[in-house]
Amino acid sequence: MLNLLNKTKCILIPNLRKTASRATHDVVKESSSEVAVSKTTTAPLILPQNWPQYEPMNRAVSRQVWIENIDDVPERKVGIIELHPDVFATQPRVDVIQENIEWQRKYRYVSFAHTKTRAEVRGGGRKPWPQKGMGRARHGSIRSPLFRGGGVAHGPRSPTTHFYMLPFYKRVMGLTATLSVKLAQDDLHVIDTVDVPTQDPQFIKELIKERNWGPSVLIVDRDDIFPENISYATDALSYVNLMPSYGLNTYSMLKHDTLVLTVNAVKHIEERLLYQLHRTDAIKKQGKFKLDQV
């Protein structure tokens, strides 16, 4: 089953690594030949993670992902990185992802739709006709909601906020579930750095086409100041966006087809999410949200 899950990403089981199935062999062969032809002489980046506090319950289910290069259009495997199953292979709770999306849409939305009530519409102070003796229905104001041009009963009032907070651990689960979904659907790629050789958007376009990414791509790095080249190269492309890892959110991940993380970003995301999943004062985060809370 695990081999099925991983076409390009194989599971590390130390004892079985040499006797793995043919698919794994092929991958190994392919990658080794590619590494051989590549011009660079740097050693491959093998990053078995050593989560000191938050060791997964079963090491065998932790995922392994190729680290790809971004300095050239054709794909070259620079190394391999191990991903924590609690972050990158959790239950893909699509319903929680949906709740996160809805929350991210709503909490910042203020409705400015506005209607005037009968009191606010100009005029209508006097009784339009006497109560009795006219043979007409009794009315007290020409601005009543029954009248054309009158006020609106129970209409929208501006500004209406739709702010609410999703429970903290639903937000955490939204992130882990989305990362897991992205990895399971081959939409998550890990790159070594964000250093591209040119400032030309054409390079990024070709890269995306060659790698079968996208069409829309979200590139996430640890730092919020990206190198000049990639900033210029992606500036004109509206469907390629850059984001620091502290800004990672469910909506942006889902809005883009492909998520590209740097190794530093992966480590940072993993560290933060594992901390939140294991923190001992979690009960404090589960309380009711107050506006003045820290």
């Binding site: 899950l5 292979a89 893909p92 999306i101 979904v181 399971a184 659907q185 081959d186 809005k255 087809d257």
Partner: peptide
Amino acid sequence: LRESAEKALKMLRTLPRVQIGNIRP
């Protein structure tokens, strides 16, 4: 839980990409 997660993730591989437009509560 682990087992069901693996099962669900395996299933997701054959399903269309999860996107903003195709998820619902």
